[in-house]
Amino acid sequence: MTAYSLLDLVPVVEGGTVSQALANAADLAQHAEALGFSRYWTAEHHGMTGIASAATSVVIGHVAAATSTIRVGAGGIMLPNHSPLIIAEQFGTLDALFPGRIDLGLGRAPGSDQKVARAMRRTLETDSNAFPQDVLELQSYFADDGKTGISATPGAGAKVDLWILGSSTFGAQLAAALGLPYAFASHFAPDALDAAIAIYRRDFRPSAALAKPHVMAGFNIFAADSDEEAELLASSQQQAFVALRTGNPGKMKPPLAGYRQSLGAQGAAILDHVLQCSAVGSPATVARGIAAFIERTGVDEIMVASSIYDHDARKRSLEITAEVMSELKVAA
């Protein structure tokens, strides 16, 4: 049966603060844990006033301390921003504090623009081999196999689950070659989803980490007790996508009735494309959307993206999602 997990970018809403966003993250993770979600992930973004997860490993520690059983991790750490040794030390520390619960998803995008990248004192690497080599170096630190000549402390021997993330076929090829689980960012970049999954499954090589392919895909879910309410809740994320695509990102805005229609045909088409891997509506509507996505992709796990302005409404959306997944499991 398809597992379900939660991606939380720790949104900072208009009228809210970073402190409140971080408190909401811990509360949301506790709620997801009680509802049976497999894992809670947050992601590295920089220079964005509406996202409070820039210090990703710190946020993971905050959330892991507030929960007890759910896996907690990064979806992901943007490895070009860091030396592999630093990430080995950070996640080795997390594994020592919360053994058996830490995931580390690795991406090759910078999670920022060129200006922010320079502020982090990193030169964006254009060599296509740099990311795979960094992943191998990171694996070596965790394995403590002596290949680097350095023993990461903490880090050596840590049992951190590594994932490869991607929104193209590149990550699928790398995950398959290394025998690692693969997560596709279809919640905002759906174009290569089917091709990437096919390549990953076709070329997968079993490894000490994973005996058979394991695919996760991002899927937006905005669930409420009625279709109309869910459509209204989804408008905050729609506004966020438009703001990002037009170079004007900011804090998450309140829901706006009729927002999608106000964009006109071209704007609505952009949203329909970027958010095509989504289910918005009542429990019945969401159930149909999730079932269709699973039938299309055959994914082992859905990573639920559900950025909603109102915290209580977001928790209710997760409740409906968990209920739907349980019903689908029974039906299967």
Rank of each mutant, 00 (worst) to 15 (best):
A211P: 04
A55F: 05
N81I: 02
L180P: 03
G258E: 04
A284P: 00
Q266D: 15
G111E: 06
M78L: 15
V286A: 10
H62M: 11
P80A: 03
I77H: 00
T153Y: 10
E323F: 07
S262W: 01
G298I: 09
I60Y: 06
N220W: 04
F91L: 07
P283G: 05
A175M: 07
L232E: 03
G179V: 06
A88H: 03
R201D: 01
R288T: 13
L124V: 13
Y200G: 06
A119D: 14
E89C: 01
E44Q: 12
A64E: 05
N24K: 10
A292E: 13
I199M: 02
R245S: 10
Q276T: 10
I77N: 00
S307C: 08
A192E: 14
S168T: 14
A130S: 15
P254F: 04
A211D: 11
V63H: 08
V160H: 08
G250E: 07
N248H: 14
M216I: 15
H187S: 03
E327S: 15
V324C: 09
V135P: 09
F219S: 00
G179S: 02
L97P: 07
I77Y: 00
S262N: 01
W163N: 13
D310T: 03
T169I: 12
R71P: 11
D203C: 05
S128D: 14
T56F: 02
R296I: 08
A26D: 00
M78S: 08
V72G: 04
D145H: 06
R39V: 06
T67R: 08
I294L: 15
P80F: 08
Q261Y: 06
E137T: 13
G105K: 06
E319R: 14
G76S: 13
S151M: 12
I308M: 05
K329M: 11
M216N: 08
V135M: 09
A209D: 12
G149V: 07
V286Y: 10
N220L: 14
G107H: 04
Q114G: 14
A55K: 02
A257I: 08
T17E: 04
S235Q: 12
G171S: 11
F241C: 01
A185I: 00
V299T: 12
L22W: 01
A65T: 09
S128W: 13
A177V: 05
T42V: 04
A196C: 11
I290F: 08
S317A: 13
P110L: 00
V299C: 13
A217T: 15
P84I: 05
S207M: 05
G149Q: 06
G61R: 04
A268W: 00
